[in-house]
């Protein structure tokens, strides 16, 4: 999260993005960055290393249902992501008086959808990876290109056409586009593509991860 703030401070000069400042565009984009960090790095590492150390096996020897474990785990990580987003908004507001044209429940809803979709991917990585080390590597290999090619760190508007074509196939791009849209007051109806992609990711990711989930 500190890295995030560092990069925010570094973005002080504000060239215009459709009449908005760099920071105005970046704050919702950084929400995507938080989502991908927690979803593809924290979740798989945490889950796979708990499994490797034998923590999950110990739970398996109790009447605890796998679903209950997953819900608790998702809730914990969701709390982490939310905390990160709130800090980001605080810095944006206090530091840059960031422009906000949307409504709060809507942005929160979009953030939640993106977060859950990426958690599903994270649990999927954890279920597929045989060890914690591999889970970490796979998580990073997936996360870093997404960070740079989705508009989460560098606005897509500054990228060449070819890169923007690639970015359309990256799930994080849809998180960022949706959040930026909602942030500037656009309706959910204008982002049906993003919603379909994210709901699909969430559904497929959850189904596959649940099927492959292992206690040991």
């Amino acid at each position: 999260m500190l890295i995030l703030f560092g990069s925010i401070y570094g973005n002080e000069p504000t060239p215009l993005f459709g009449g908005r400042g760099m920071v105005d565009v970046s704050v919702p984009a950084y929400m995507g960055l938080i989502i991908v960090t927690v979803g593809l790095m924290s979740v798989p590492i945490q889950t796979a290393s708990s499994r490797e150390a034998g923590v999950l096996r110990r739970y398996q020897a109790t009447p605890l249902r796998p679903m209950a474990y997953l819900i608790a785990n998702v809730a914990g990580n969701y709390g982490m992501a939310l905390l990160g987003i709130l800090l980001l908004l605080l810095v944006g507001k206090v530091g840059y008086n960031v422009q906000f044209d949307g409504n709060v429940p809507s942005v929160l809803g979009g953030g939640t959808l993106g977060t859950l979709a990426f958690f599903a991917l994270g649990y999927l990585v954890a279920s597929l990876a045989p060890t914690a080390r591999i889970a970490q590597t796979v998580g990073m290999v997936l996360a870093f290109p997404m960070m740079f090619l989705s508009g989460a760190t560098i606005p897509l508007e500054t990228m060449p056409e070819s890169v923007r074509n690639v970015s359309r196939f990256i799930p994080l791009t849809h998180v960022v586009t949706l959040l930026q849209g909602l942030w500037f007051g656009e309706g959910w109806g204008e982002h049906l593509t993003e919603i379909i992609v994210l709901v699909g990711t969430l559904g497929i990711g959850t189904a596959v991860a649940a099927r492959l989930f292992r206690w040991e």
């Binding site: 708990s50 150390a53 034998g54 923590v55 096996r57 110990r58 020897a61 109790t62 009447p63 249902r65």
Partner: peptide, 29 residues
């Protein structure tokens, strides 16, 4: 599940989350 409510299990290899405190672990289980 109903069996595991009535048995106690100490595994040969097991761990808990590293920062979980003893009292917290007892409470959780």
């Amino acid at each position: 599940y109903s069996l595991r409510e009535r048995i106690g299990v100490q595994l040969q290899e097991a761990a808990l989350p590293p920062r979980l405190k003893v009292a917290g672990a007892m409470d959780l289980f």
